[in-house]
Design a protein around this nucleic acid. Structure first.
Length: 882
RNA sequence: GGGCGAUUGGCUCAGUGGUAGAGCGCCUCGUUCACACCGAGGAGGUCACUGGUUCGAACCCAGUAUCGCCCACCA
């Protein structure tokens, strides 16, 4: 075999004789994945060449899978879509930047590290060199929280990176077996040093430009995880509750009834609110009422957000029961009377706004209780006071949950970091909507999800979390002589010092012993939300700040592939960061994959027990087969998990091997278009040229399914009709060497193109065949052009193949209906033809006769039929086997 | 409640104005000199429903139903 080379013999300019000496006797897909995945790695087939300028690069912002989770069929599905694009672009001549990231930042990883090593992150602890964790491995069960050893954040991150390595190895093995053409020398971790430095640098630059700010404000809070939660992480779920009809009292003692599902917030009530137009409450506006049990005097106010047909039409506004309360509180300038703490329990101290002895006694019974028990207690108190009207009635309400949490979110006031994302600024919102319009969405209809989300933002992006594991905010605060931190004058590090951990590193101008003392400094205790890091994947993967030369060659990137459910989070937040930092889109195209549905049309999920292990799937069906299934589904469309489709893919891959073996079995192959003289051969190549045009246009438009369908359908006709028609001639059975040469050259030229067309979807089978007769990797060949094919086709009409194929089918039908072998000779027959097909059939008559085994007269008759029909056929005796 | 997508033969899906398509499955037959992980032939659909536009509608418009998803909905 010749040395590996990326040069391809150009059919038009450099006719080459290729000897098919390496075609195996028996072809098989067995072991093909290991063989070629290994060869690609050894030969650096997919290596990124960083000498190329930006115009010659196609860069992909690969989604980093969560390493602590497990890969499922959906990953295989969507990552295959991306790989098809990568392979196509590479063959089109682009230098493809296709890195792989590992997401090891965030709660799932934190939990896994805790359970695996039996540690928990405590940023107040110092780093311990050479720390050995108490456990290694889970032995099938998690280490109890009480037994977890606290370690410093740096130690925790080190353990996380260590654990991730094992996951990464397994993930990489799967991806290699699937045939992803990733450059495996370029990987990144979202909690690694570089990612932390990028996340911190990007934040500091946002801060310096005023795009990041901190504010003390009511916000959604998860009491289980004890952290603030962003709008994008909310999930509305059904939550059972009860309406309680509760009486407030006017000064004259008459009741005003409200309905509430959260009576435990009664002590936090700051007003009653009804719609300004509501007739029933006009007389109350401007007056006061007294709350039951707690005896606090409250105003009755009007606000348009109060809905007359909800509950009693008049609501109690508490600080804070829901986001409407927050709005009322803000717009009506109401006092803050918070009773629920960050732990989800009512404050221990009795609030000072409850002044009556009776009210304070009532609160004492609630102090320290969870909202759930406090609710029961307040209901009992209301009932005792006679202020509960009737019995509570069950209702199903929607409550906001943190997507990873299982208790409804509370609203508490806290100091948090935000990044401006247009939620509170119409100019920014408009600019970000314009970015969405600028992006090429595939499929197009996904754009509206982005627009809906951006249009519906109600606040800036909350990026701080009160967790311990993650990228810390690179900020300290001076501590005044009064011992209070000065949040308005944060101390920041030099960019060169990043990443820093303010819980252990010391700001410039201070010494370690000044930490947390009056006149000293204190570190910001919070970490960034994982999306604050993930929103920077183009910067992280592209080497921003660390390798500006590389960054300039890959950014802005060409493609963001991702799933549809994280448009509001990952896609949008990445656009925000790039817009703020670079004033441009982070990529030009987005490719949004759908979900995988199980046979019941439900989204595949672990809890349903219907998840198939991807590796098992690849082993059972073969990687090309699984890729075929994935590539058969359009972007943005949910696809069924269909084993049948994989079997078809496997059949196709095997067919590629067998048909190629056959096409190469007629002697030396000369890729010389001038040898193609037969009308049928020319017509076949003309048809193939059309397929190349169609497939190319489809792939350029991110429509891989159309490209595959065109190629596949041509290929089956090629196998079933064309190969049968030219078989005898290619063997030289009729003694006409020029006609045989024409067939062999056409077969070679077609195979050369077909293998390249299939290469993005079936990388293993095509590479296998390529290796039988050509040098180098098919995956480094240029994508097929039509010039050579059109030259060889010499203006022939592809319809000749259709006509001859139709004629052959008619002859086969005669035999099929007579229930005889296809080898049975036809002694005499009349072919009735639509007039339009006659020229085509005549042009290929000798091949039709040979393939149909017509040994006697074959009459052609024009007729008013839709397709060729064989009439008056006389069948001979089946040939004796030799 | 707002939005997006889907609804085509048993199954999975193509098909954006001109007499319904593919593969699988099914039926019948053949075949082992490329391919039994095979080949040939066949049956099978009033394109969810109701109106409308048009000479003509699976396709365009209006509405309805069902399914999936996104957003909103905590009194």
């Amino acid at each position: 075999m010749a040395a590996m080379s990326d040069a391809t013999p150009q059919p038009t300019s450099a006719p080459a004789t290729l000897v098919a000496r390496a075609v195996p006797e028996k072809v098989s897909l067995d072991g093909i994945e290991d063989r070629w995945a290994g060869a690609w790695q050894e030969r650096g087939t997919y290596a990124f060449d960083r000498s190329k300028p930006r115009e010659q690069v196609y860069s992909i912002d690969t989604p980093p899978p969560t390493v602590s989770g497990s890969l499922h069929v959906g990953h295989v599905f969507s990552y295959t879509h991306t790989d098809v694009v990568a392979r196509f672009q590479r063959m089109r001549g682009a230098d493809v930047f296709y890195p792989m990231g590992w997401d090891d930042n965030g709660l799932p990883t934190e939990r896994r590290v805790q359970n695996y090593y039996g540690v928990r992150c405590d940023p107040s602890l110092p780093y311990v060199e050479g720390f050995a964790p108490p456990h290694e491995g889970t032995d099938g069960k998690a280490v109890k929280a009480s037994e977890q050893v606290p370690v410093s954040r740096r130690n925790f991150i080190e353990l996380c990176l260590r654990l991730s390595q094992e996951d990464e190895r397994q993930f990489e093995a799967l991806w290699r077996r699937l045939g992803l053409s990733v450059d495996w020398s370029m990987t990144y971790q979202t909690i690694g040093d570089h990612a932390r430095a990028v996340a911190q640098a990007a934040f500091l630059r946002n801060l310096a430009r005023g795009e990041a700010y901190q504010a003390e404000a009511p916000g959604l809070w998860d009491v289980t995880f004890q952290t603030a939660v962003a709008q994008a992480e909310l999930e509305a779920r059904d939550y059972p509750g009860f309406f309680h009809r509760v009486a407030f009292h006017r000064p004259d003692g008459s009741p005003v009834h409200i309905e509430t599902t959260r009576p435990e917030l009664l002590p936090a009530c700051v007003a009653l609110i009804a719609h300004p137009d509501d007739e029933r409450y006009q007389h109350l506006f401007g007056t006061t009422v007294t709350s039951p049990v707690f005896g606090v005097e409250l105003p009755v106010l009007a606000h348009h957000l109060a809905e007359p047909d909800k509950g009693a039409g008049i609501a109690m506004c508490c600080t804070f029961g829901d986001l409407t309360d927050v709005q009322w509180w803000r717009e009506l300038q109401l006092p803050t009377r918070s009773v629920v703490g960050r732990d989800g329990r009512l404050h221990r101290d009795t609030p000072d706004w409850i002044t009556s002895e009776q009210g304070r006694a009532a609160y004492d019974e609630l102090a320290g209780k969870t909202t759930f028990s406090a609710r029961e207690a307040v209901v009992a108190q209301l009932r005792a006071a006679g202020d509960l009207d009737g019995e509570p009635t069950a209702t199903q309400r929607k409550a906001n949950f943190y997507e990873k949490g299982d208790k409804p979110l509370e609203i508490v006031t806290s100091r948090q970091w935000y990044i401006r994302n247009g939620g509170r600024d119409e100019d920014v919102r408009a600019a970000l909507l314009a970015r969405g319009a600028e992006l090429d969405w595939n499929p197009e209809f996904m754009r509206v999800r982005y627009e809906n989300w951006v249009g519906g933002l109600t606040g800036d992006w909350l990026i701080s979390r009160q967790r311990f594991f993650g990228v810390p905010f690179p900020v300290w605060y001076p501590v005044g002589e009064d011992g209070e931190p000065d949040h308005d004058h944060p101390l920041v590090p030099d960019q060169a010092a990043l990443p820093v951990d303010p819980s252990s590193d010391v700001p410039a101008g201070y010494t370690a012993d000044q930490r947390d003392v009056p006149g000293g400094f204190t570190g910001d205790p919070d970490i960034m939300d994982t999306w604050a890091t993930s929103s920077l994947t183009p910067q992280i993967a592209g080497g921003w700040l660390a390798d500006e030369d590389l960054f300039a060659r890959v950014f802005p990137m060409d493609l963001r592939p991702q799933a549809q459910d994280i448009i509001r989070t990952w896609l949008f937040s990445t656009v925000v960061r790039s817009h703020l930092e670079f004033d441009e889109l982070p990529w030009r195209h987005a490719a949004i994959s759908g979900f995988i549905l199980d046979p019941d049309r439900k989204k595949m999920s672990k809890s349903k027990g219907n998840v198939v292990t991807p590796m098992d799937l690849l082993v059972e069906h073969g990687s090309d087969a699984v890729r075929y299934w994935a590539a058969s589904a359009k972007l943005g469309t949910d696809a069924a998990f269909e084993v049948g489709q994989m079997k078809i893919g496997r059949r196709l891959a095997i067919k590629v091997l067998n048909a190629s073996k056959f096409a190469l079995s007629f002697g030396d192959v000369e890729l010389d278009p001038t040898l193609v003289t037969n009308p049928l051969d020319r017509a076949m190549l003309a048809g193939l040229a059309d397929v190349v045009d169609g497939a190319t246009a489809s792939l350029e438009a991110y429509d891989h399914t159309r490209a595959l369908e065109l190629t596949e359908s041509f290929f089956w006709t090629f196998c079933d009709d064309y190969l049968e028609l030219v078989k005898d001639r290619a063997y030289g059975a009729d003694g006409d060497e020029a006609a045989a040469q024409s067939a062999r050259a056409a077969l070679g030229l077609a195979l050369d193109v077909l293998l390249r067309l299939f290469a993005p979807v079936l990388p293993f089978a095509t590479e296998e065949v390529w290796s039988w007769w050509r040098a180098g990797s098919v995956h480094r060949q240029p994508w097929p052009e039509t010039d050579g094919l059109r030259t060889a086709a010499a203006g022939a009409d592809p319809a000749v193949v259709t006509a001859a194929g139709g004629a052959l089918a008619a002859l086969r039908k005669v035999k099929s209906e007579a229930k005889v072998s296809m080898r049975t000779p036809i002694v005499a027959v009349t072919l009735a033809l639509p007039a339009a097909l006659r020229p085509g059939v005549e042009a290929a008559l000798a091949d039709v006769r040979a393939a149909g085994r017509v040994v006697g007269p074959l009459e052609l008759a024009d007729d008013d039929v839709e397709a060729p029909v064989a009439r008056a056929a006389e069948l001979g005796e089946a040939e004796a086997r030799s």
